[in-house]
Amino acid sequence: MAENTRETFEPNIVAFLCNWCSYAGADLAGTSRIHYPSNVKVVRVMCTGRVNPLFVMNALQQGADGVLVSGCHPGDCHYMQGNYYARRRFTLMRRFLEYLGVEPARVRMSWVSASEGSKWKEVVEEVVEGVKAVGPMDQFKRRQLNW
């Protein structure tokens, strides 16, 4: 990867999207030709309830500058409750990472339904802007220390 300065920094965002709502929403954004920043790398999961909070940690270790978890709106989960569990887990994870010194802008969550192509664009823009503002993640990225 090229050296990033704050000005030219293009963050690397890993987004975990639920199959039923957010993935379809992002897909809709694409088919509707809605332009949104290309910084997100999407990982499709069946439900946000499947996203282990440690995925966030692992993504940050492997080189993500920010992580987004996105699922169905409360009450709309395809599996009834998955997003409610996820909400608790990521609320705690985000606060905890902030306590360790990871900017909260790096850990985001959103509800994007299958029909919200334009909301997906807004979410991505906001997440990317947020991460750009805090710069590259260098706290505990796997670096080739003493390799």
């Binding site: 409360p74 009450g75 409750q81 409610y84 569990y85 909400r87 608790r88 887990r89 609320t91 985000r94 909260p104 985001r108 969550m109 959103s110 509800w111 807004e122 979410v123 906001e126 997440v127």
Partner: peptide, 16 residues
Amino acid sequence: PLLSTFSVEDREDFIL
């Protein structure tokens, strides 16, 4: 167990 349950009213002020 805390994380095996939820409340519909759980706070979500940081969620976009």
